[in-house]
Design a protein around this nucleic acid. Structure first.
Lengths: 142, 142
DNA sequence: TATTGTTATACTCTATAACTATA
DNA sequence: TATAGTTATAGAGTATAACAATA
């Protein structure tokens, strides 16, 4: 019986999250999703192309192109590794930081508007839920 | 002060939902996202290609191709409208229903496993949150 | 030999424009 | 003329395979 309830919740929660993600994705402009994601990754800490390809579950060839484009746009820089001449460490430029911030602001706008229309009690529930969802994903190997 | 809190919640909730959506999307196989979505739309009620294009915010040309592929795979059928010979109403076939169910089962698996690891209290919060999130999206014109 | 990264080529999903058929 | 749908063609993002440079 509890199993049936959990299956139903799994479905409803999955669908709800996917709808929200879809809505929000429309709001960010000027930076395609695959470019945005890489900037966000590199912001946390400088990475190599191979590391990024693994993290994003994308081929090394695709990541190579993505990284070249970001560099051409002036959003990242690549500096040769001191001891291993094969790799280059990718970091955000100032323009990259600004682009990331602006895009996040756009993405957040839709959600902020919706939250403003919620009751304080609803917002409290959503706040707790966000923390739980975060833990659900971070429990992963990845 | 409440505004700051709401902005922070907007960010956290958005990121949490996007992470979940991303995780789940990896789990469904055999049916690309754009095909899955159309089957789900048509399941609710038979639709025309033009209606589906509008609902999915995609061009009529793209929808035309998508629909042709689904028909070739035997997942939908198209029957001419009785009074308007220009349009054809798209419906799920038996195979379409089965494909949809199987794909949903795959998508739900990851979420079900995570929920099983949550406490009953956490599941209660998530259940409430799912309902609120659902209302947030459905409040839209679309 | 193994690994990091790039280039060559092709496939998929998307779009705009031009077209056919029906209203 | 207007609308529903299709086909022609092109662009963006991805993949596999072949390659270059370094370990």
């Amino acid at each position: 019986m509890a199993r049936v309830t959990q299956a139903k919740l799994a479905y409803e929660l999955r669908v709800a999250c996917m709808r929200i993600a879809r809505k929000v994705r429309y709001e960010g402009s000027g930076l395609a999703p695959h470019l945005f994601t890489i900037l966000a990754q590199v912001e946390k800490q400088p990475r190599t192309a191979t590391e990024l390809a693994a993290a994003e579950q994308v081929s090394a060839a695709s990541m190579s192109r993505t990284v070249v484009e970001l560099e051409q746009r002036g959003l990242i820089t690549r500096v040769r590794h001191e001891s291993d001449g094969r790799t280059r460490l990718i970091s955000l430029t100032g323009a990259g930081h600004r682009e990331l911030a602006e895009n996040r602001r756009q993405r957040d706008t839709w959600m902020r508007d919706r939250l403003a229309a919620c009751s304080p009690a609803e917002r409290a529930v959503l706040s707790e839920a966000a923390a739980i969802l975060d833990r659900m994903v971070c429990g992963d190997a990845r």
